[in-house]
Design a protein around this nucleic acid. Structure first.
Lengths: 337, 337
DNA sequence: ACATAGATTGGCAGCGCTGCCAACGAAAAA
DNA sequence: TTTTTCGTTGGCAGCGCTGCCAATCTATGT
């Protein structure tokens, strides 16, 4: 109530009521002015604004949200902040959401569906206006909660499967298949794979599945495979390729689970003087900056990560029927195949 | 109120009152059970939990927060999601905050102080328990708001200056100075600089200032300088070095505004066959993965970004006097100097 | 001057939940 | 048995704000 103690120390917080009183108007009038909603005279406006300014009034959206209907929060659930894919998607989503007056609340699952469930439950208790989650695979209870919440739900970065409401992504299976067909069409036949822990990264697993079946369709198979148990990184790709070539020195091409891994492989070859693509071809996934700017641009698949975030956010902010949008991907014919 | 329509369609939302009624207990009892707070019999506990489960009750933290005192939200304000520094810091902060039961709410300023002011104002209206912001430079009004909010405020990733409450970071000036002294001690004398837009990235500007004054102390100066107008990227570093060497072909070392830029420079040299470090030395900043795993590990400065986020979050969650913690940095003597 | 429509404005009931306090038993102490 | 104690429990007043509605003015129209 009282904004100041005798010594001028502010105590408690300034509320709308304080502002209204100071401006000599009713609460609702002050509320209307501060939200620029409804009608009021220019004079009233001035006095309310002055009062608010001089009292250092900060509206309380907690109360506002409770009193009105929906909140202006949007929950965003991603597996990781280390894999550039998610910050990129987050960036796209953030831009659109903020532009539409929403506030993103992020949660990171570390690729664990159990944690995802907990986090989504927790986010839902903030009564968000919408929810954006990565991928289509969730626990049964997660799906039930999301459906029950009766808000817009966008599932992003994958289009291989059915979603709850809005799906914006691209086909990971398709990307894997396209990569395989590209290698085959270039004449490579002894093709290996270096990947990271696929039990957690489900989208990488889908790519590998698509890759493998496309090879099979071409009458080939994955000649050798190296899975590193950690998450993906350049270092891991470098070591992984080293080990793979140790076991299968006759490979003529290697497919990596993503560009981080592939760049690691590229560095391995540079360091060992292995000619690319003469002696060994390298193919990645994701179209990272580093892959594009390397002395030999990496052959890879560019995905519209930022656009996925933007499109997803746009749909989450709008009404309309459930939608599925496949933003596709682009195969980059770099210099490493 | 009523949870279902005649056809079973849930309408409105299930509230605590509904749960209490279904369990045949009072609201406050239900509230206590669901929060595991206060005392209640095992039997009561069961019936409340069952009722909550069967009704699909999701607590409303908006209401809970309004009724109790503080929220469990922590606002995090960063300039960008593209520069790996910030996702890294965010990751550290996220881990600690979630562990302590807080929910991060992020906002991205695009390196604009004006937008930072607006975003902080907006975040404060959620009555967060604490605030984490990047850097020590803010508008006067931002600082006033932050002080007035009477919550913990952590300013991160920089220690060159005074903060509002908690400061966790390292000296950017110092890092620049250390880089310069390293190059000088290795015998380089014709030293150039390739940087990105410093008017926005204040910490990069501080590094350059520290770098330049250390050179001056050694009786040298920045022999040539190339500033690219965009934000930092590998591509920009590559082009920037190309242009710089075009103008000043006799340089023997180049300092880059960060590792993205430096890796770009490294790639330029690889592509042009410029011997590193024989013909040209390269020094970066940030200790990125890609810099560490390159065929020649980049000489750079490793900063404790994740630890800054963790430490900052820990302090924001605790009471105590204003604190300033310098987490330092580590000079990596790679193979490019 | 008297209506009439439209612009302004204030009062007040909640939004869903928590905190406080009084009430109620039942077990423990006298 | 009576009193004290303590674990349980329900009622109810807000938290700060918004939405609704009735009340008050003001400017026009007749």
């Amino acid at each position: 109530m009282a904004d100041e103690l005798a010594d001028g120390t502010p105590t408690g917080t300034t509320t709308l009521t304080d502002v209204a009183r100071a401006a000599g108007v009713g609460e609702s009038t002050a509320s209307r002015v501060l939200r620029g909603h409804g009608s009021f005279s220019a004079k009233t406006r001035e006095s309310v604004l002055n009062a608010a300014r001089s009292l250092g009034y900060v509206p309380n959206r907690i109360a506002g949200t409770l009193a009105s209907t929906g909140s202006k929060l949007v929950g965003i659930v991603i597996p990781s902040l280390s894999n550039i894919v998610f910050p990129d998607m987050l960036r796209g989503a953030n831009t659109v959401l903020v532009g539409a007056g929403f506030q993103p609340v992020v949660a990171v699952t570390d690729y664990e569906q159990g944690r995802e469930e907990t986090l989504i439950e927790s986010l839902l208790s903030w009564r968000p206006a919408g929810m954006m989650v990565a991928g289509l695979e969730h626990t049964e209870r997660t799906v039930a909660m999301l459906r029950h919440a009766r808000i817009r739900v966008a599932e992003l970065l994958d289009s291989d499967g059915d979603g709850i409401d809005i799906v914006v992504g691209y086909s990971n299976r398709g990307a894997g298949g396209a990569s395989a067909r590209h290698l085959v069409s270039r004449g490579y036949r002894r093709i290996g794979y270096v990947g990271h822990d696929l039990s957690r990264d489900l989208r990488a697993a889908k790519r590998f599945a698509g890759f493998r079946s496309a090879l099979v369709e071409a009458g080939l198979e994955v000649a050798a495979k190296e899975i590193i148990p950690s998450s993906s990184s350049i270092e891991a790709g470098r070591e992984g390729l080293g080990r793979l070539l140790g076991r299968a020195p006759d490979l003529d091409a290697v497919y990596f689970s993503n560009d981080d891994m592939a760049i690691g492989g590229y560095f391995h070859c540079l360091a060992r003087g292995i000619a690319i693509p003469g002696r060994l071809a390298i193919f990645g996934y994701n179209g990272l900056d580093v892959a594009r700017a390397a002395p030999q641009p990496l052959s890879t698949i560019r995905t519209p990560r930022v656009a996925v975030g933007e499109t997803g956010a746009r749909l989450v902010c709008s009404d309309g029927p459930p939608t599925k949008i496949d933003l596709g991907f682009e195969l980059i014919e770099g210099a490493t195949t």
